[in-house]
Amino acid sequence: MEAKVFASSQPILSLRGISKYFGGVHALEDVDFDVYPQEIVALVGDNGAGKSTLVKIIAGVHRPTKGHIFFQGQPVEIHSPHDAQALGIEIVYQELALIETRDVPANFFLGREPVKGRLGIFVDRRKMVEDTVRTLRELGIELPYLRSPVRYLSGGQRQALAIGRVMPWGGKIIIMDEPTAALGVKESRRVLDLILRLKEKGCSVIVISHNMRHVFNVADRIVVLRGGRKVGDKKKSETTPDEIVKLIVGADML
């Protein structure tokens, strides 16, 4: 199934020859990067390898110094996070992007509240609650208190909320930067399940992670960056954690 999807379809997102220089620092150098439909791509590499820079270029936070981006085969320019969202590229900001003092529906719809009435200024609270409940159920996210402030939720529940809320916006590609970094074993498992469920729902996911076990748990393909260059691009079925680690640290270079 994986192989079929991989082989038979066009990439939904293609980056070609991407370079990014910050002054004299070459953060990325001539990187090609593809994401296929319904594919989970893990992006791995040491600190400073260029992972965050790469996803920020995809999310419209940075603009590449050189190179081209194609979305569903068409050349595109992503100037801002807003442009990225318009294409269906959503980035999951971690816990820091939740409002602790507000409840779950308020956080779920933050910045995209549905309105009702002719004036278009009144929030449709009922729709917010209903849609939140439905999406959370679809994703299998269980939150005990919908109507109390988010601060009463656990770390894992907050992370699930942060991920779940990008779902209803027709996101085709969802980017996560270390989604399990601050979580315990059980909570990490839940988040990984959630990533798999997003794939079932038709999304592609780009995950940055340092945790090899998590990477091999969910990823279809693993892309390795080192010193701003792509040094590995392997299907999970054709590689091992050992090989990936070697690529990350550069032990193959002899």
Binding site: L96, A97, L98, I99, R102, A106, L110, E113, F122, V123
Partner: peptide, 19 residues
């Protein structure tokens, strides 16, 4: 309570970065 404006006031006060 009911308008987008009001809810953003709370959101910004709760976590400006997130807003």
């Amino acid at each position: 309570k009911r308008t987008v404006f009001g809810r953003y006031i709370y959101a910004i006060g709760g976590n400006e970065e997130a807003a």
